[in-house]
């Protein structure tokens, strides 16, 4: 296991040479990463990119195989119980006891973190108020809507006042309004208390709301920066061309204009500094072959395509 030599006090997480396998499949490949305290960081990647494995490692659900991880200055796996006191973990699948009421779920959670009876009651009352759960506090969780259940879950994992909040696909199963509210709560907590938040997502629009994005693919970090900086690295305009014979047209464009192109999901994509000029040239030259042509600003998906040559979404 590689040692972490210098404990960076400003780092929420330090990861060095972490490698993780499921049998012969490599989920994480020699991963190095340092994440700052007090930020909202999104792990963005398609299915199989390694973000869930990374989440499980950080949440102490699975043990380290190779490399070293330090979370909030606690090295894994030696200080796992001390670390768990400082973590709030929201899983993708629901983790509430549906046969218990909202209040009972919160009180039970408090007992796992050794809060005294009085302190637990006080915090539960405050949390119910803070998350506007008052009208539902004596309802069985199974009777609440998906959005309210997610809200209760968030309240539950914040009850013991963690320093780091880990969220696995937090928007799963909730409607757009509940998503907006979830992000409002996260941002408010982050700004008011300096709570560090790390979340995994496969939704580009969700990742864009974070302070920092770690783009993962095939177990490796392909990009790590703020959303703004990541978009600026592309700088170009993106042309997307639809045609009946994409391979043939791609070859023709590359031969005629010496332009690098990418073929994705039967569409030809071209990055160009003056894309709007190129549109008319392409239409004049290959008008008969082109079904449609679209000009747009680069997105995180374009960055992913540029870095990996692959589509973000499954074909």
């Amino acid at each position: 296991m590689m040692p972490i030599n210098t404990a960076d006090e400003q780092a929420a997480i330090q990861i060095q040479k972490v490698h993780y396998r499921y049998g012969s499949r490599h989920a994480l490949v020699d991963l190095d990463l340092v994440l700052p305290l007090g930020k909202i960081v999104a792990f963005l990647g398609p299915n199989g990119s390694g973000k869930s494995t990374l989440f499980r490692l950080l949440s102490t659900l699975i043990p380290l195989q190779d490399g070293s991880i330090s979370v909030l200055g606690q090295r894994l796996p030696q200080n796992v119980l001390s670390l768990r006191k400082m973590l709030g973990i929201l899983f993708q699948s629901p983790s509430l006891d549906k046969k218990l009421t909202v209040r009972e779920n919160l009180l039970f959670q408090a007992s796992f973190y050794s809060l005294s009876q009085r302190e637990a009651s006080r915090r539960v009352a405050n949390t119910i108020e803070e998350f506007h759960l008052g009208p539902y506090k004596d309802d069985y969780v199974e009777k609440l809507s998906g959005g309210w259940q997610r809200r209760v879950e968030l309240a539950k994992v914040l009850l013991h006042r963690p320093k780091l909040l880990l969220l696995d696909e937090p928007s799963t199963g909730i409607d757009p309004q509940a998503r907006i509210e979830l992000w409002q709560i996260l941002r408010r907590l982050n700004q008011a208390t300096g709570l560090s938040v790390i979340l995994t997502t496969h939704l580009l629009e969700e990742a864009e709301k974070a302070d920092q994005i770690v783009l993962l693919n095939e177990g490796k970090v392909v990009a790590n920066d703020t959303p703004k900086n990541l978009r600026q690295t592309l700088g170009n305009e993106i042309l997307t061309i639809e045609t009946q014979h994409p391979k043939q047209l791609q070859r023709n464009i590359e031969e005629k204009f010496s332009l690098p192109t990418t073929l994705l999901r039967q569409s030809i994509r071209i990055e160009h500094t003056k894309g709007h000029h190129l549109v008319s040239t392409l239409v004049e030259t290959f008008g008969d072959e082109i079904d449609s042509i679209q000009l747009g600003k680069p997105t995180l998906e374009d960055l992913f395509i540029q870095k990996t040559g692959a589509s973000f979404r499954a074909d």
């Binding site: 949440s59 102490t60 659900l61 768990r84 006191k85 629901p94 983790s95 509430l96 959670q109």
Partner: peptide, 14 residues
């Protein structure tokens, strides 16, 4: 199945 156990497993309870 309901996911409750997962949240207990990552709590500080040994």
């Amino acid at each position: 199945k309901e996911g409750f156990l997962q949240s207990v497993l990552v709590s500080p309870v040994p």
